[in-house]
Design a protein around this nucleic acid. Structure first.
Lengths: 188, 188, 188, 188
DNA sequence: GATGAATGAGGATTCATTCAT
DNA sequence: AATGAATGAATCCTCATTCAT
């Protein structure tokens, strides 16, 4: 699936948009994003039809990256809690390593800019994580709660934990643990 | 003695803004809000210096109203879980009764339009709730976690639960219970 | 000729307008002028039909005051140059004593806010000065130049001299003399 | 290689602004200026950052043009009065040929829209004229007066003369002479 | 008459998007 | 494809003036 145009430029624009979202919010002018990406403002629109399309692409990109990071080092055989914790740790690590990406993602998530289609696609990238979560749910107290609800809770606890870590990176490990334990308690 | 600034008009503007935020987001034009409120667009600015000031006022108003609703029927003597659950139920009821207010509040909460001062003031209105949460925390597993973190978690679970309820109001009661139990498990 | 309403308020508004013009130019909001004058913004319009009317009134008032000041101590018998110089000195003194009034007057003079009628009325207040100027002109090199032209020149030299004095009040007397001599040379 | 900013458009805007200033004053809407110039209202701002910047550019342009016109046909060897008179005539001619430019310039000059920097730059364009004036001053009665004062006087006499000419263009030549003689008398 | 809230037209500027080069 | 000028709708806010009290 060769993508015409330049992948580099596409990436540059997405990265610039990520930074812009963090510093200026979703109202960041496309002109600024283009400049930051080192391309002409008009060029931005050869890569993304509209500003909204760009933001959806950013969302998908970041979410996918995050999911990939989270699934890293996944081992089939391990015990469920073990596996889940590993995912959790990967997740927190990613958030710690790329604070801007995380914040941009959070902003996009609550915006109404992201279409259902994009959300679905992003959900697809999370399969691995979702599957795991599904297993956890199946054995715990939230068996009868809708998966969506559980997913939201997990996201919320993760988000809160990330904030904690971002505020006090020194105790990243401990905070991560606290968040995980809370989540686990809630689910089991 | 001229017309004095009318509370009715102020309220009308705040209500109109609330609705506008829900349907159009924070970029809703002030002109539309004014029209919806039945006042001239210029009048909006005699009640609120800027659009931002209006949004802060909306936030404060809604948060205060929510907190008041949550604290309703508070009884000193009751057992902690009982008290906390009552607050929770009040909260969920309010969200069910005023879905628009709830959604507007959520949108404002994640926006960067709300100043720290406003957030502080809003926090002040939540004293009753916060105090209760503090007691719960003190006896549970999150004793050593920062209050802010716990507060965020509570908000998140509440928010998720409200969404669930909003989607399926028929089972409001059950959903409310599920959410509360999850929260309680997490905290204790 | 009893003027109804309060003369005090009228004066207060005119004074406030004078100050406002100096600090903010002719675009100074009427609301600010009213506040500065200690009256309600609506009241301004019971004293002056429109903002433009107010400015015309200010102009007339200031010009009249200036003319009165200039004519002070006029003595019929004196030699022409003597008389003219006395007027000139009075004029410069007034400018030195009321720098704000002078500057407001200058601003109004070049604006197109002042109607011909007002200018005519103001001209009327200058009779004494004009008459004197007329005599000077009659005997000098500008005999055949239109009176209006001569009047403009006199104003211009006066204005320039006032600026000089305003910049360096210490040498007010000398500057005044320099200006007068230049004017006299030009006219004779 | 996209369209590059066109000098024509820039000029068109400046010309339109010049006309607008004459007919409507400095409060002339930018939209009108743009339309008159045959560009979209937004385009005005790709050529000039702000309305104020536009006015400063107009001022600089007109003043420079005027200075250039005045210096035309300058001959080193001629007698001082001769040289000065030639400049004066050029100046009056320019004013007669471009009455709108002259009036716009006069309006801008008295406004507080023009920054000191712009005034300095404009002054730079007048070097030739200023130098001549300096020489005249050096030999006359205003030797000890500050150059600025003398410059103001010259401008004032010129302005008054231009008005006279504008009112009665038939006698342009005679009026020009009258004005010059008056100025010369004042300075020598 | 006095007050100050109410009005709504007006205006500078921004910005997503298009298009000539 | 790349560029950046061109476009013009959209928007917040101001302010002279009116009017209910």
């Amino acid at each position: 699936m060769p993508r015409s145009k330049s992948d580099d430029k596409r990436s540059a624009i997405i990265n610039a948009a990520t930074r812009a979202i963090v510093t200026q919010g979703l109202s960041a002018p496309t002109a600024g994003i283009a400049k930051e990406a080192g391309v002409a403002n008009g060029s931005l629109f050869t890569y993304f039809e509209t500003k909204s399309a760009l933001f959806n692409a950013v969302y998908l990109e970041l979410k996918t990256e995050m999911a990939t990071a989270a699934s890293h080092g996944f081992r089939e055989g391990d015990e469920l809690r073990e596996q889940f914790f590993r995912v959790w740790q990967n997740w927190m690590n990613w958030a710690l390593s790329f604070p801007e990406k995380r914040r941009a993602l959070a902003q996009l998530d609550v915006s109404d800019e992201i279409t259902p289609a994009t959300r679905a696609a992003a959900h697809g990238a999370m399969t691995q994580v979702t599957a795991l979560l599904e297993q956890v749910r199946a054995i715990g107290s939230l068996q009868r709660a809708p998966m969506n609800f559980v997913l939201t809770l997990m996201n919320a606890v993760a988000e809160a934990t990330m904030n904690l870590i971002a505020q006090e990176p020194t105790n990243a490990k401990r905070h991560s643990r606290v968040g995980f334990d809370a989540l686990w308690r809630m689910m089991t």
